[in-house]
Design a protein around this nucleic acid. Structure first.
Length: 378
DNA sequence: GTCCGGATGC
DNA sequence: GCATCCGGAC
């Protein structure tokens, strides 16, 4: 029987997170899950920790619909932790091929071998022990412990963060440490005393089916009556999206040196941006005097400098930075017959369209050279 | 094209 | 603390 043992009387202020306790929250989630949640996913209706674990790893960063065929194919080939541990890693990688995030597959294999070697093939039920295994973090460990063993442990994945951020009106990016710490406190405090499986599944289902990123179905939500975001009409603002780091900006000067139907190009090193491509010669950005001298030095082996005019500057955005390009057109009085030594080459203009050039450089060159009266006269 | 995401390694 | 890994959703 329950309830025979009194909780100890409070001797001090509530612990952190304790004030977040609210049995009606989990009750609402559990009732909704039983009636409206998902019950027929291939990894449900089993307490086989191997299957639960496999599905949880596959579901990291990956949506249910994408996982299902992989999960079933994987189980046919590796029906238990022993067969997986014994499988060649090439086979494991092949089974994972197409799912992405391949460190998951390597960790999966390692994890299976550790479970066999250290636990005799039985996944531990302690979330802390689970979280010590490769590829299993705190949230995944809790999910495995809850679904496989009925252990009372809190999950906090992207779906749950979104639900909590909205229901409790939590400002700030949930990936930031202080916010995430608060979310974990909530997650732990809100755990039900009974029905951890339906509760855990219910949080996942809410995030995946109603409380979705784009347009949530608040009218169907069992938590709508207590949802701070809904009450404040901030559903579209929460959770706060990841602050986009100001992209670093860099500048460069590119030279368009054309003569006799050729243009001077530079072979880029294999590493770094535009690795291995041909591009325009660049010079370091400095003051005007240094600039003139740098242009002189660069073109000296190839001919005698005639004139230099500034072209329209433009920018190019990469994933990780923004590049401002200041192009200059350099005309030569005459061209030296000597062969280029280092990475600079004369490249026939008519072959530029098929040259391995970065897109912005190709665009610049074709634009400039098409309207180039100097070139047209050659 | 842009955004998103658990665990991990730096 | 922050980049990285990948494919899918939008």
């Amino acid at each position: 029987m329950k309830g025979l043992v009194d909780k100890p009387r409070r001797k001090s202020a509530p612990a952190d997170g304790e004030r977040y306790e609210d049995p009606s929250f989990s009750a609402a989630v559990i009732a909704w899950q039983k009636q409206h949640g998902r019950h027929k996913l291939p990894w449900q209706n089993t307490r086989d920790a191997y299957r639960v674990w496999l599905s949880e790893i596959m579901l990291q960063q990956t949506q249910v619909a994408a996982v299902i065929p992989y999960y079933q194919r994987f189980l046919e080939r590796c029906p238990d932790v022993f067969s997986l541990a014994a499988a060649p890693s090439e086979d494991v990688m092949a089974l994972w091929s197409g799912l992405g995030y391949y460190t998951r597959a390597r960790n999966l294999h390692k994890c299976a071998q550790r479970v066999v070697n250290e636990y005799g093939g039985r996944f531990p039920d302690d979330p802390d022990l689970l979280a010590d295994l490769p590829g299993i973090g705190r949230s995944t460990a809790a999910a495995i412990a809850a679904f496989s063993y009925g252990r009372r442990a809190a999950i906090l994945d992207g779906n749950v963060k979104r639900v909590f951020a909205r229901v409790f009106g939590i400002d700030g990016y949930p990936g930031a440490k202080p916010i995430e710490d608060k979310l974990w406190l909530r997650a732990v405090a809100l755990l039900p005393d009974e029905g951890i499986e339906a509760y855990t599944q219910g949080l996942m289902d809410l995030g995946a089916t109603l409380c979705v990123r784009g347009t949530p179905s608040c009218k169907k939500c069992p938590l709508a009556g207590r949802c701070v975001a809904l009450a404040q009409d901030r559903v579209g603002e929460l959770p706060v999206s990841k602050p986009k780091k100001a992209v670093p900006e860099k500048e460069t000067v590119m030279l368009v040196v054309a003569h006799g139907g050729d243009v001077l190009l530079e072979q880029r090193p294999d590493s770094g941006i535009w690795g291995g491509l041909l591009s325009l010669p660049e010079i370091a950005v400095g003051n005007a005097g240094q600039f003139e001298h740098a242009v002189q030095t660069l073109v000296a082996p190839y001919g005698v400098l005639d004139a230099c005019r500034k072209l329209q500057p433009f920018s190019h955005v990469f994933t990780h930075f923004k590049l401002h390009i200041a192009p200059f057109q350099v005309a030569l009085k005459s061209r030296s017959p000597r062969i280029a030594q280092h990475a600079l080459v004369w490249y026939p203009v008519e072959k530029l369209a098929d040259a391995p050039l970065p897109a912005p450089v190709k665009k610049l060159l074709l634009g400039v050279l098409r309207s180039d009266d100097l070139l047209a006269a050659v």
